[in-house]
Every structure is written in C-alpha cells, then in structure tokens.
C-alpha cells in the first residue's frame, strides 16, 4: 500500500476489548469520506496490517489482561505520536476487570475445569498462549496516554470530535450529550 504522505497515519487495535469501540467508530458512516481527506489507516483491524511504524495517532481499545496486550501497547506507544485510550475497558479495565476480585488460578479453574460440563478438561497452556496478568489494568497504568475517549462504546460523534481535534491540532472537547461512561 503506497503511503499517502500528506495524510495523518491512524492506527487502531483492540486489547482486552470486545471490538464494540471499533464498531462504534464505523458508526461515523459517511463521515468516513471526510476522514479519508485527512487520515489514512495504518495497522488496524480495518486494514489487517500487522506491523506499525511512524504512525501519527494510535487508538487503543480494551485494557491489559495478558502479556501480548503489553507487547502490543508498548509497540503502539513507541510508534505513535499521539495515543488515545478509547472506551471503558481501556480507561478502567471495564467488564474484563470484573475478574480482578478473584485470583487468576480460580478464574481458570472455573472456566476450564470446575464449570458445568467441564469435567476432565484441562487448562490450556503452552508457549504460544500469552499468560494472563494477575489483574486487568487500564492502559494509562503502563504508558503515557495523550487523550481519553470514555464510553461503552464512545458514540460516533465523540470519535468525530476526537479526530477533528487531532486534525486541527487542539484538545478534544466532547459535548455533554456525548460524554458517556456506558
């Protein structure tokens, strides 16, 4: 894919998230044409590009629940001029953080061995499987985050304001009706 040098390079990823924020992003509908005037997608589930280098903006959906999330987040921080925490999970762990009140071992036992109909099954393990962190953490506990877009998911209008603000080199001002924690 040829680089469009005059456009800002926008990367996105989902860590411990449900892709709901990405779906809400797509709710910008025809504003995608406006976005295309100023941004081009870099590494993102939208492009299926797997590597990242010299991006301008990185949108992080989801919190940190395993070692792979940490690797991806550090890669984004290293390669994005601006990093944005998008959605409740990136900002406070969200629904995945409901497990924070239990030891990881208990969660694995419940899911793979002790649950109904699971007798005789084993807890998956292996070098290719990223190990779980003791607690699900918000993104800004590990790296510096430049902007935060709350919501579960943030409404499409909030994405538009965020991208307009970045395009115009100012801080985003989310209107009251688009401020959402749910």
């Amino acid at each position: 894919m040829a680089r469009e040098e005059h456009k800002l390079r926008l990367a996105t990823c989902s860590l411990a998230g449900c892709f709901g924020c990405h779906m809400s992003f797509l709710d910008i509908d025809e504003w995608l044409f406006e976005l295309d005037k100023f941004f081009t997608f870099d590494r993102s589930p939208f492009t299926d590009i797997k590597t990242l280098e010299n991006a301008d903006v990185g949108l992080i959906e989801g919190g940190l629940c395993n070692q792979e999330n940490i690797e991806v987040l550090l890669d984004f921080r290293k390669n994005c001029k601006l990093l944005v925490s998008v959605g409740a999970c990136a900002i406070n762990g969200g629904v995945p953080a409901l497990r924070n009140g239990f030891p990881v071992e208990d969660c694995l036992l419940e899911v793979y061995q002790n649950g109904v109909g699971l007798q005789g099954t084993v807890i998956p393990s292996g070098k290719e499987l990223p190990s779980l962190l003791p607690k699900v953490l918000p993104v800004h506990e590990l790296v510096k985050v430049d902007y935060f877009l709350p919501g579960c998911p943030p409404p499409a209008e909030a994405f538009i304001e965020l991208l307009c603000a970045i395009r115009d080199n100012r801080a985003p001002e989310i209107a009251y009706e688009h401020r959402r924690f749910d």
Binding site: V95, L98, L149, C152, Y176, R179, F181, D182
Partner: peptide, 23 residues
C-alpha cells in the same frame, strides 16, 4: 463499572463526572 450498573444514566456520581468533564 458503569456499563453494567443499574443506576447508570441516573447516577449522581456519574452525573457530576459528566458535568466536570472527567474522562
């Protein structure tokens, strides 16, 4: 965890956070 809370949208803690622009 606002997304799963029954009071979300009617919660005074959340409402003050919205008004003060807490992200």
């Amino acid at each position: 965890f606002c997304p799963s809370c029954e009071l979300s949208g009617n919660c005074q803690l959340q409402a003050l956070a919205y008004e003060l622009g807490m992200t």
